[in-house]
Design a protein around this nucleic acid. Structure first.
Lengths: 133, 133
DNA sequence: CTCTTTGCAAAGAGTTTGCAGGGTG
DNA sequence: CACCCTGCAAACTCTTTGCAAAGAG
């Protein structure tokens, strides 16, 4: 589609996304890179994230507290979202791809992706505020 | 928490949400009710939807094309989201609640909700544009 | 009469986009 | 040198909020 040229910023953004497991939002990445790239722009982060998703190098995990969360770990897996602190953790999910066929039969559609997420309170928040479990 | 008083508008909104299976967004509900309630305000729809969710009378299914989708069918079930037309269909999901324990053991957290959704192309869109399957 | 709900419109938050200048091949 | 990428800031979209008036109990 579009010729993609190398870019130091893009490389850094993807690297940062790959180096973390907290499924950062655009702003989180921006904040983390701002130190090394003082002239980095939020718009650039958004633009590059969109490219990663388009190229299959990243995936949108979901929307937590109004912000999209990204993940460079594109192999299908489930997530645990803490409603308390907004943390997003990876979960070793059962094989969901086996359900695709079932869903296709039921809906008559064609499944191209699936997303399984659990919401609750993470261990850290349980410890901090255990009573509210 | 707050004393909830009866309101014709609120009743109508909840009724509309319960009467449909298309998992409407706030705007969809607004558009559908505007006829019967010409003086209805979008803000009111949002406010009441938030109340439904708080009261457990509705659930946010997910964010499709930037808009939150609501469902008055609160029993846990999966959804099929058409990336083509934005339709959201119910899917008779396998019992996911059994996985809660597994996830809790793995993360050390506590699961309070789960969401399973499949993305793809619905039957209608497949028919209209079959080649791109 | 008291307290909740509503309309309207402005405010907010997150994300996208246009343009001119800088980087890459 | 041609074209992609970036910073900046304005524009956009969806959602939330404040306030005075209307409705419910």
């Amino acid at each position: 589609m579009e010729a993609r040229k190398f870019s130091k910023k893009r490389a850094a953004i993807l690297e940062a996304l790959r180096a973390t497991d907290e499924h950062p939002s655009a702003e989180m990445l921006y904040a983390g890179l701002k130190g090394r790239f003082p002239d980095l722009s939020l718009g650039t982060v958004y633009r590059n994230l969109a490219m990663f998703v388009a190229d299959g190098d990243a995936v949108i995990v979901g929307n937590v507290a109004g912000q999209e969360r990204y993940d460079a770990h594109t192999a299908p897996h489930a997530h645990f979202i803490c409603s308390c602190c907004g943390a997003v953790l990876d979960v070793c999910s059962p094989s969901l791809s086996g359900l695709d066929r079932q869903v296709e039969l039921e809906t008559g559609g064609r499944v191209t992706a699936r997303s399984l997420s659990f919401t609750g309170k993470c261990a850290r928040c349980l410890g901090t505020d255990g009573r509210t479990a």
